[in-house]
Amino acid sequence: MELQGKVVAITGGGKGIGRSIAVRLAKQGVKLALLDLDDAAMAETVQLVADAGSEARPYNCNVADEATVEATFNQIVADFGAIHGLVNNAGILRDATLIKVKDGKVVKKMTGDNYSLVVDVHMKGAFLCAREAAAHMVEGGVEEGVIINMASIAYHGNFGQSNYSAAKAGIVAQSKVWAKELGRYNIRSMAIAPGTIETDLLRTMPPEALDKLAAMVPLKRIGDVDNIAQTVQHILENNYLSGDVIEVSGAVTL
């Protein structure tokens, strides 16, 4: 895909990995639709995109709500005239072990609500956004469309993350299905599985904790958000990438 002038929507586009993707793509002439629930963060990213020489518009959107997602993508197409790419990046964490045991007694359980919330935001949210983006790509007659789904190396299974790991595994599966279903319309679907990436959340950790995380990575360093943004750009530009997962983890294996 030639990036100049294309329109790409990014969920979770207000900060972190989403912001980094937006700024990198803006430098390539991409117009951005930013979906998030944090209006202040989106406003900052809109300005960063403008500083990079392109245009972004913010859309307050709960990606797990079907009616809201439908309305948001209708508005994106009304505002920009088309949509060519989607990065499903929105996500939350509600970590806990399945059960917590003390002295042979179960003292805590992962709640069904926290399981469902994480699955809804990650997996259902990606499904709803991909469905709407693909529908507009087909009906809008775009020559090529790309859907990029943010998984995680946790899709292999990560301690204390039944909900998150299941959601990310589901995202990988969905991404592969969409590559098969949408290929006839020249719409590609790929997944990216980041490892440990330096985000705002990670930067709040004590230095010694960060050092321990880095020591677990064979490359002995934590990844940067731009490492993920680079991968997004590569997928968009390489028109024979579809149906696969690119792990950006510094060789970490769970």
Rank of each mutant, 00 (worst) to 15 (best):
Asn60Ser: 12
Val142Pro: 10
Val87Ile: 13
Gly13Asn: 07
Glu132Tyr: 10
Gly5Trp: 11
Ala41Val: 03
Glu198Leu: 02
Glu70Pro: 00
Phe73Gln: 01
Leu201Glu: 13
Lys168Trp: 08
Asp103Pro: 07
His156Tyr: 13
Arg24Gln: 11
Phe80Ser: 10
Met190Val: 11
Met123Ile: 00
Ala215Ser: 14
Ile192Leu: 10
Gly145Met: 00
Gly157Cys: 02
Thr111Phe: 03
Val87Pro: 09
Met190Tyr: 09
Ala229Ile: 00
Glu144Tyr: 08
Thr253Pro: 00
Met110Ala: 13
Tyr185Ser: 08
Leu219His: 08
Ile187His: 12
Asp120Lys: 15
Asn239Trp: 02
Tyr155His: 14
Leu86Thr: 12
Ser152Ile: 00
Gln47Phe: 00
Asp36Thr: 08
Val30Asn: 09
Ser152Tyr: 08
Val217Leu: 09
Val46His: 11
Asp211Ser: 08
Leu128Met: 09
Ser189Gln: 07
Ala229Cys: 01
Lys180Phe: 00
Leu37Ser: 11
Thr196Asp: 06
Ala130Thr: 05
Met123Lys: 03
Gly223Tyr: 12
Ala90Tyr: 05
Met123Asp: 10
Val146Tyr: 06
Gln75Leu: 15
Met190Leu: 07
Thr111Cys: 03
Ile246Glu: 12
Lys108Cys: 02
Gln4Cys: 00
Val8Gln: 09
Phe159Gly: 01
Ala251Thr: 11
Asp79Trp: 13
Ala166Lys: 10
Met216Trp: 02
Gly145Val: 01
Glu132Cys: 06
Asp113Lys: 12
Ile246Thr: 15
Ser116His: 06
